[in-house]
Nucleic acid binder design. Sequence first.
DNA 1: CGAGTTCTTGACTACTCTCAAAAGCGGTGG
DNA 2: CCACCGCTTTTGAGAGTAGTCAAGAACTCG
Lengths: 225, 225
Amino acid sequence: MREFSEGQIVKHQGARDNQIYIIKSGWAMVYTYLPGGSRQVIEVCLPGDVIGTQIAGEELAVLTAFSAWVAPAEGLPQAIAGRPSIAEFFVAAAVRRRACMTAQIVRLGQRSAADRTADFLLEVDARLRLVGLTEGDSFTLPLTQNELADLLGLTPIHMSRTLHKLRASGLISLKRQRVEILNRAAAAERIGFDPAYLGDAEDGASTESGSSSRERINQGATSYN
Amino acid sequence: MREFSEGQIVKHQGARDNQIYIIKSGWAMVYTYLPGGSRQVIEVCLPGDVIGTQIAGEELAVLTAFSAWVAPAEGLPQAIAGRPSIAEFFVAAAVRRRACMTAQIVRLGQRSAADRTADFLLEVDARLRLVGLTEGDSFTLPLTQNELADLLGLTPIHMSRTLHKLRASGLISLKRQRVEILNRAAAAERIGFDPAYLGDAEDGASTESGSSSRERINQGATSYN
DNA sequence: CGAGTTCTTGACTACTCTCAAAAGCGGTGG
DNA sequence: CCACCGCTTTTGAGAGTAGTCAAGAACTCG
């Protein structure tokens, strides 16, 4: 168990760090700088998340003072060996993490600035809700608009305008790091948000289809954006 | 070990599939459809990759007839329990997969259409190279421009124009599913591509910094795009 | 040789970026 | 307590990249 202070860079870009962090409290984020100097925030990490940054190109920084369990990744195989419940915990965390990365890819690839923003805020809301850290329909988001912009692939200028529009549309408001879901139903409906991907991954039967026409794969993509 | 035919959908969106696939030969891709009908390709999978799609929202389809080892994910903990080499294999595969997803996020968030395309093609080239499946500086890419567009978050129309420009610039050519790296050095230099993130993750010492100023985190993002 | 898919081209629209500057907020020190 | 400084956020105007609509050419396959 270790403590980290706000703004601390836990792992620098280019460094190696084979440790696993289980966040107990506080926020962090993972990002990379491109040679040109621009930054892409890969993911935002909050309490309950299990993160590990084996990847040299990623940098891990603390957003708000936080504490985490830290353990070397090498010990993981042995740790989960005979203990199904521990194995399940890590598997669930890994699946959830991947689901969030997938969501991020979809956001960046398919959505407009406003939809990206709303989608992300709804995701954070849902994730916080899972660990009981929301206050009604609002929560504190410890990200500047600059950081949000780097997360959503926008310029800070456009981020500001987008937040303005979101607020004006009466869906979600973000002011001074305070997010308020003004109209959850409408917001979720607008972007097709369904928090199911975040958790409680109960098993299901393995499914498989026999459809073997290539057209099926492509037909859906007729309406862009 | 199982065989899948071209165009087959291994797992449908919404279905559950707790299996792990180790691709022996052939290509596949993972994608999701949005409510509006647009599709985002999450990742492209090729020989040597270990894939598992526990996530209901993702669909897994075969691009070229392929064969794979298939095993239930539940058995994984036991399988890697006492066998370090097996555990390492899966860990390396998982790290590489995450690195590819990170690369995809960076592409979509920070790069122009041309750079995205070049970056992706260089990544595929490097990944194929790792498993010895390139022929000199060219390889076959079993993706239509439509699929490429859905992968890179572009419209097929713009994809076509972009490929045209890439070809004209003398960096990379893609014609009839054949990719040729015309000028690898220039292409890699242009987008800052470094294949190091893909593999051979040799361990290193854990690193950590004491820098605790928040400014450091934000200063880099002054030049957009 | 069609039929269907895939790819290309053209003209126009619009979303997002860029450049520039000012206003708001927060902390420090005189 | 107020002035000042830095960072963050906002506003305005113009440019550019990518999307949309429409149609035609090229390729694949039976």
